[in-house]
Computed example of a mutant assay.
Amino acid sequence: MGDHVRGAVPHAQVLVDLSAIRDNAAELRVRAGSAELMAVVKADGYGHGLVPAARAAQVGGATWLGTAVLAEALALRAAGIEGRLMAWLCAPGERWTDALAADVDVSAAAPWVVAEIADAARETGRIARLHLKIDTGLGRSGSTEADWPGLVDVALKAQAEGLVNVVGLWSHFAIADAPEHPANVAQVETFRSAVALAEARGVRPEVRHLANSAATLMSPHTHFDLVRTGLAVYGLSPLADVVSPGDVGLRPAMSVRARLALVKRVTAGQGVSYGHFHVTDRETNLALVPLGYADGVPRHGSSGDGGPGGPVLIGGKIRRVAGRVCMDQFVVDAGDDHLQAGDEVVLFGDGTSGEPTAQDWAQACRTISYEIVTRFAPRLPRTYIDREAAL
């Protein structure tokens, strides 16, 4: 089945294997043990497609879905997605009434958030399901330890008024991708203390949740009642230096493919792309790939100015970007290999056919695979397959 956007280019696509997402969720569900599994589908399902990814993850065993922004949670409900659904990133004036009407769990890290949610509950007549977030060391969202008692008290007051139910206590790891780092131990201890304080004051949480993908895979003692898995749902390893996806039973779900737009023979000394950071050292064939940074190909995948160039598979051979990645295109120096317009280019996939992976691109661009898969633009059509259903 396909999900083509208006104005999408015909010469490239993002291919998403829904059976991989489903199977990854099933594997993570087993690894979660007694904890429930949240599939995080923020950022348009990490670039895989919000609604298709959510449905596949639920089939695989995810009992919760999570988004950062409320708009994506509301889009899931509008698409008919049921089950527990949480959104957690907000700013003053958030659409709380819409959240409550759509039966979305919400989160607060400061008293003003609780107050806004309580006002929405009064307006809608619906009791908000509220999660309280403690900053255990990430230094990002979440209440400080000093402010935590006050946040708990404000939330309990709203609960006593029948406006909210405090159903969750949660936090987020900073360095879970280094399982032996002492900061992880400190964060778990801080989280346990915060939970104990909240419970001593009367909170009876349905779920306590801390573990992300890395902790779900490598640190079972952090699972508590619910694990929140993002990257791993899509078959990528959050601990690329420690384990590969296959090591933990995961399979990458996304592949990015294109067709060559032009192949031409040039002489030695030909500068290639902006800045001439690549200059041919012999007579050679240059192959033009009609994808660029406006589509999601990282400009840091350029070669000749400090990086090796992003890898692609063309004609059964791994080749690298020659010169700078442009807005809509990049060039590959193919030597004397006979290529022609229309030949398939695989930027990355699951690696089983010899193609590069998202992690290979991450290494070439000195970034992480999260960024690689989430950046591909809507003008590239998403095509969805289910390999197992086709068998």
Rank of each mutant, 00 (worst) to 15 (best):
H4C: 11
P10W: 03
A12V: 00
D17I: 09
A25W: 01
V30Q: 14
L37R: 02
L50A: 04
P52N: 00
L70S: 05
I81A: 09
E82L: 13
R84G: 14
R84A: 15
A87G: 08
A91Y: 02
A99Y: 06
A102D: 14
D105A: 14
S107K: 06
V114S: 03
A115F: 06
E116Y: 03
A118L: 05
A120D: 12
A121Q: 03
R126S: 05
L130V: 02
L130A: 04
E145R: 13
A146M: 05
D147S: 14
A155V: 05
G162H: 02
H181D: 13
Q187Y: 14
V188F: 15
V188Y: 12
T190I: 11
A194R: 09
R208A: 11
S213I: 11
D225H: 10
V227N: 07
R228V: 09
G230M: 04
A232M: 06
Y234E: 07
S244F: 06
G249N: 09
V256L: 08
G271F: 09
Y274W: 15
H276Y: 15
F277Y: 15
Y293W: 15
Y293Q: 10
G296T: 10
P298L: 06
D305S: 12
I314Y: 05
R319T: 10
D328T: 08
G335P: 06
L339W: 13
L339F: 04
A341N: 01
T352N: 06
G354Y: 07
A358N: 01
A358Q: 03
I368L: 13
E371Q: 12
I372S: 02
R375S: 13
R375W: 14
A377L: 06
E388P: 03
